[in-house]
Nucleic acid binder design. Structure first.
Length: 947
RNA sequence: GCUGAAGUGGUGGAAUUGGUAGACACGUUGGACUUAAAAUCCAAUGGUCAGAAAUGGCCGUGCGGGUUCAAGUCCCGCCUUCAGUACCA
């Protein structure tokens, strides 16, 4: 019957599925819905390596499984196709990013198709497609036109705020707003010019333009959000990042801090991921305390989590960037303070982080007044206080905080002790649950909790402070000085941002002569000749037409990468709708994503931002749900096994791994394709790789082989350790690749790719094929096995089948796909040994296998006599009766009475059971009168009864 | 430092959640088929001791204690590795 010709089987079914649109999901169905989504890929020029599809395979198994289970499954795919790499490639080559992006997408699609995924491609979206980013721009506009009302705890239209302002002013408004929002009465508001009104409203809008200190990356020529910076350098490229004041769009995500936190309790995500979002949001409870300054009208506000230690304050510290620093510094201290401020400003984020140990600061000469004792408190500045957290100022309690303690020690500031019976001569005591407060007036004798409540009460009475919850989360900078991103639907009239009318969306990206910033430092869109908005004709016109009446300059920044990915999961529900993000019916039907699969690196980026946008759109009545992803699985990364050849330092001689005797070696990456599975290097291939290696010497092992050193690293082109899925599919087939990736280990764990092991899975599929066609079982026995017969199945083979169904279903539900592969192998071996060839058993087995190995399953299913696609077949049901019916009952007596009966497989010999009982009677357990609760019997082997 | 995850054969990893530790696979060794290689198939494979053998004994899940008839699994105390985060007041 021929060999297992996976290449032709796989292309045959892939073609069949495409032609029949087998996986096309309908928005109208009687079936229950299930939405399975992968984090969509950024199509890079390098194509996919074997690590990328891991999550797609897992989600595809789940999607196919759910279809079998009778669900209407939505399983779409698309591309996150705006982004920096395409733009940098464009800068180097002059090639339009649109073109490279299209080419990369075509390549991705080819690779994805090859792996037999059951995506509904009719719903594909691309973030760089104007028909798609129309809705990204639209959401931006909704944010611009909204404010956050803490009283109703939701976002509301900005027009409602205007109504409130015109009748009551803003004093009663509890809204998320800028810190320096001035108080305005209704009278003042109504007297405002339209421009003044707009300026005030910008303080409330959920996306706003503000002069903020941002992370500027000179090499990339753009600002970065906090989550795009890792260890003080840019995530992409690893370039230094400096602080810079710039006018930028920001998203008022801080308004949603508490709800983003609360929502975590309602979703089924991995705990580590929830933890990192919790930490990122960084809620802390405490108090805000206002310290009046001596000889000045100014007040310094601080946030503290330990208001109970307020009597331990011996100084205050401001961040060097604090706005009051210049004003409060005395003439005598001016020079010292200015020198210090200048010195800290010059230091990059990275230097500051690297050098946390050294203590620096300066005295301002100013004194604050203690709110309770009235004593003067010296005000210092120090860079251990961060401008971006809390109020940028702290009340320093050296006895209770190690940083304050170190600072006080360094500058000889007194360290009063306010803890009863605690020695603070060596360091601060910060364990708040183990102290009793002393030397603290009305707080004496109280512990942390009561003392905190009392202080807050007292502060509120005096009007010098209040209880407060502070969040670490910052508003997210939303502008990027890039070309390849969504343009803002914004133009500027007298420097004030105006939205273009939503009827004229999308505002499409203009053409530019080059993708670099302009000479005067403007973003690339500054090069566009046609980038002005005619507010009468409502269209983009040439910059030359800009005037003061009707034609205005458009925004030159573009949106960041996360803009397009924050709501794409809803667009899939109705991707071609040009009237709405998606129709109400579609959104009501699909609700939100039931299963989302992707990497954990998006914990504090995409996964936080999309939750924010979804909550916002829920508030505004656009979406019916307020969380995008009900359940989330993080697939682990597949790592590469790099190969290093060692070169003698400064020479052209390479030395095999076993022949290095203490010489200084320089490891060099060799392409893994030159190395076989016993770590032997193909010297000729290596020589031919680079001209400089052509004449190299090679010191080999005694047997003549040259061995490389292996090391596990991230899979990357630059490390020459990339394994390509195309090659694997070509050689072993997609079904083998799919099953092997699952077999490699637990889905959520990082693990190195090792091609050697793939033969195990591959030969399983070959065996299955052979078994069906030639009836030769795995153990070589001939028995006509699997050449399907209509005979009823034996009890034992039904038992094997249902054991397998039970285990595989359990595995899929728990995402333990790795153990299922073993289960299939065992089942096929056992059935082969049984000589089972009944259709009754084989059909369900083939269906059961299909989520993992869809192509071979489909092929065998067809051969079993079915003409319909396997994906509409009913999933085999696990029926316990097959496990039960084919077992025998044995009564077990205990202390003379029959205490219970045992269910055991039919093939269990009676002698074994009797031996078990006898063995049990000798145990201490029996002698102590304990009844057994479980009996373990191994046929022909050890027997054990446990109590 | 803090948070989280994890330590099981030569390797990747199983273990019905307290009940035969090492499933399944890779690798290795031996064998079959080949002139040979590849492919394929079969057998053995945690360590150790006894035995010609069948077989049996002992030790074994990072380390040290504990609970239990029974611990990879639970409790206490350590060690190590990885990941995230970091002067967050």
């Amino acid at each position: 019957m021929g060999n297992y010709d996976f290449n032709s089987i796989e292309s045959k079914w892939q073609k069949y599925w495409a032609e029949h649109q087998t996986f096309k999901a309908s928005n109208v169905s009687e079936k229950p819905k299930y939405y399975v989504l992968d984090m969509f890929p950024y199509p890079s020029g390098a194509g996919l390596h074997v690590g990328h599809p891991l999550g797609y395979i897992a989600s595809d198994i789940f999607a196919r499984y759910k279809r079998h289970k009778g669900f209407n499954v939505l399983h779409p795919q698309g591309y996150d196709s705006f982004g920096l790499p395409a733009e940098q490639y464009a800068i180097q080559t002059g090639q339009h990013p649109r073109k490279t992006t299209q080419e990369n997408i075509a390549r991705y699609r080819e690779q994805l198709d090859q792996m037999g995924f059951s995506f509904d491609w009719s719903r594909e979206v691309r973030t760089s497609d104007p028909a798609y980013y129309k809705w990204t721009q639209w959401i931006f506009m909704q944010l611009f036109n909204s404010w956050y009302d803490y009283q109703q705890d939701k976002a509301r239209p900005i027009s409602e705020l205007e109504t409130i302002l015109s009748s009551e002013g803003n004093t009663g408004v509890m809204a998320a707003s800028d810190n320096d929002t001035p108080a305005v009465t209704a009278q003042q508001w109504n007297d405002f010019t339209s421009e003044e009104k707009q300026r005030l409203l910008l303080n409330y809008r959920l996306t706003y333009l503000a002069e903020t200190e941002v992370n500027w990356c000179p090499q990339l020529g753009t600002v970065l959000a906090n989550d795009e910076i890792v260890n003080g350098v840019s995530e992409r490229g690893g370039y230094p990042v400096v602080r810079k004041k710039m006018k930028q769009w920001s998203m008022r995500i801080t308004a949603y801090a508490q709800r983003l936190l609360n929502g975590l309790d309602t979703i089924d995500w991995p705990q580590p991921l929830k933890d990192s979002q919790t930490n990122w949001i960084g809620r802390s409870e405490g108090a805000e305390v206002h310290f009046k300054l001596q000889h000045s009208d100014h007040t310094i506000s601080v946030f503290t989590t330990r208001p109970d230690t307020i009597f331990g304050v011996s100084f205050m510290t401001l961040a060097p960037e604090h706005e009051l620093v210049a004003e409060i510094t005395t003439a005598a201290q001016k020079e010292e303070v200015e020198t210090y401020v200048a010195a800290t400003a010059k230091r990059s984020e990275r230097e500051r982080m690297a050098d946390v140990k050294s203590i620096t600061g300066a005295f301002t000469g100013a004194y604050a007044v203690h709110p309770f004792t009235g004593k003067p408190i010296p005000v210092w500045i120090g860079d251990y206080v961060l401008a971006g957290y809390g109020t940028g100022a702290v009340m320093s309690v050296p006895c209770g905080d190690q940083r304050d303690y170190d600072f006080a020690r360094h500058f000889n500031i007194p360290i009063p002790n306010i803890f009863e019976g605690i020695d603070i001569s060596e360091g601060a005591f910060s364990d708040k649950d183990k102290t009793v407060i002393a030397n603290s007036d009305f707080l004496n004798g109280f512990q942390y909790k009561e003392a905190t409540n009392k202080v807050i009460e007292a502060l509120e009475q005096k009007g010098t402070g209040k209880g407060k919850v502070n969040y670490r989360l910052r508003d997210a900078v939303f502008s990027r000085q890039r070309y390849w991103g969504e343009p803002f639907p914004v133009y500027y009239k007298n420097g004030l941002p105006q939205l273009i009318d939503e009827r004229y969306l999308p505002l499409t990206l203009p053409e530019v002569s080059a993708y670099l910033p302009t000479e005067d430092g403007e973003p690339p869109l500054g090069r566009a000749d046609t980038w002005a908005w005619d507010s009468e004709q409502n269209k983009v016109v040439s910059n030359e037409k800009i005037d003061h009446e009707t034609v205005f300059p458009l925004e030159l920044n573009t949106m960041p990468g996360w803009a397009g990915s924050s709501c794409y999961m809803f667009r899939y529900m109705d991707p071609r709708n040009d009237q709405a993000l998606a129709s109400q019916e579609a959104m009501e039907y699909w609700q939100n994503v039931d299963l989302y699969v992707g990497g954990s690196e998006h914990a504090t980026g995409h996964l936080l931002y999309s939750r924010f946008w979804v909550k916002f759109l829920y508030d505004r009545g656009v979406l019916p749900v307020d969380e995008p992803f009900k359940k989330l699985i993080n697939q682990g990364m597949i790592l590469g096994e790099s190969a290093f050849v060692n070169r003698l330092e400064g020479s052209n001689t390479f030395v095999s791994a076993g022949m290095q005797t203490g010489n200084v070696m320089q490891p060099i990456h060799a392409d893994v394709s030159f190395v076989n599975h016993s770590n032997e290097l193909d010297i000729e291939a290596f020589k031919a790789w680079r001209p400089e290696y052509e004449d190299s010497e090679f010191i080999t092992e005694k047997d003549g082989a040259f061995k490389v050193v292996r090391e596990v690293e991230k899979m990357s082109k630059s490390k020459y350790n990339v394994v390509n899925p195309d090659d694997i599919c070509e050689r072993y087939g997609a079904d083998t690749l799919r099953m092997y990736e699952m077999f490699l280990g637990p889905l959520e764990q990082a693990k190195p790719w090792n091609t050697a092991g793939i033969t195990g899975v591959h030969s399983f599929l070959k065996k299955l094929w052979k078994l069906y066609h030639s009836g030769i079982a795995a153990d070589g026995k001939q028995g006509g096995v699997f050449s399907v017969s209509e005979e009823p199945a034996s009890g034992e083979s039904l038992r094997i089948l249902h054991k397998t169904i039970n285990k595989v279903e359990e595995d899929i539900e728990n995402f333990s796909f790795n153990t299922s592969v073993s289960t299939f192998m065992i089942a096929v071996n056992e059935l082969g040994a049984q000589g089972c060839n009944s259709r009754e058993v084989l059909e369900p087995l083939v269906v059961l296998l299909s989520p993992y190995a869809p192509h071979i399953s489909e092929e065998l299913w067809q051969k079993l006599g079915h003409s319909e696609s396997i994906s509409i077949a009913a999933f085999p049901k696990f029926e316990e009766k097959y496990l039960v019916e084919h077992t025998k009952e044995y009564p077990i007596s205990f202390n003379g009475k029959t205490r219970f009966t045992l269910e055991l497989p039919l093939d269990m010999a009676k002698e074994d059971i009797e031996a078990a009982v006898m063995a049990h009677e000798k145990t201490e357990n029996y002698l102590a009168g304990r009844a057994p609760k479980k009996v373990i019997v191994v046929p022909g082997k050890i027997v054990n009864i446990v109590g």
